[in-house]
Nucleic acid binder design. Sequence first.
DNA 1: GTTCCTGCAAAAGCTTTGCAGAAGA
DNA 2: TCTTCTGCAAAGCTTTTGCAGGAAC
Lengths: 140, 140
Amino acid sequence: MRGIDIVDIDDHLRKTGIKPSYQRKAIFEYLMNSNCHSTVNDIYMALSSNISTLSKTTIYNTLNLFVDHNIVEVINIDPNEARYDIVREVPHGHFKCEECGEIYDIFLDFNTLPIKDLNNFTIKTQQINLTGICGKCNEK
Amino acid sequence: MRGIDIVDIDDHLRKTGIKPSYQRKAIFEYLMNSNCHSTVNDIYMALSSNISTLSKTTIYNTLNLFVDHNIVEVINIDPNEARYDIVREVPHGHFKCEECGEIYDIFLDFNTLPIKDLNNFTIKTQQINLTGICGKCNEK
DNA sequence: GTTCCTGCAAAAGCTTTGCAGAAGA
DNA sequence: TCTTCTGCAAAGCTTTTGCAGGAAC
């Protein structure tokens, strides 16, 4: 479900005007293959074992670059910490479980959002963030 | 439009189990009458001239108390800074203009959100955050 | 008198900035 | 060689915590 059709990361980055350095490719690949709406710390923990010199500064630099180039989006569902997700074909919202902390994708049709009163506004980003208790935790 | 029907703040706080101290009433009143989805700093700037001893700690304490008691909600539209809004009868989303920074209320029917795949989930909070360029800035 | 509230100071945590050295073209 | 990228160290911000004095009842 989360897998997307970017086969050649090198090419994908280049197409958006980003030089595909070793670190940048690793960070993009991690985001693409992980399904946990990663924080900077998640990425750092996951990659620093393989790339021992990797610094958080580089992760921040890289993520900001990706966001600027619109291939990654920031999810503000967590007030204390930004989460990052690959920009996907199908826009979707997010649900965070208060109990277990897990973040779920919520697929909904953004085109049918009942938005009124927005004459002459240009919408660039849309985020739908829900919180509550997830199915698993409700069963307990 | 933003005005709500809370006439007696003292009573409103008491009903939700909050002791209506001078500071708490002032903060709640400010949120009720302002229309700018205030930050902690906004509140501090606005009130500290009248309440010279007011500290940001008290504002944080108070807002967290209000949020816990469900009479104020946090808006995470701004990654760097939390914004606070009175919980209103009519749920609504928010739009932040990248140009002027203004935050607008977006009225939409949360009940008709096209959400699927949420069997057995309990939804407690819903936030819809949009960004882009507002009508005023588009005219320039 | 006891409990709760306030606010100063300090700490904690996320993110950005400055800068020097390294890598890449 | 010249530009760009990386990463250490330090700084900047928002928010939380510890704690002592004060207010309320």
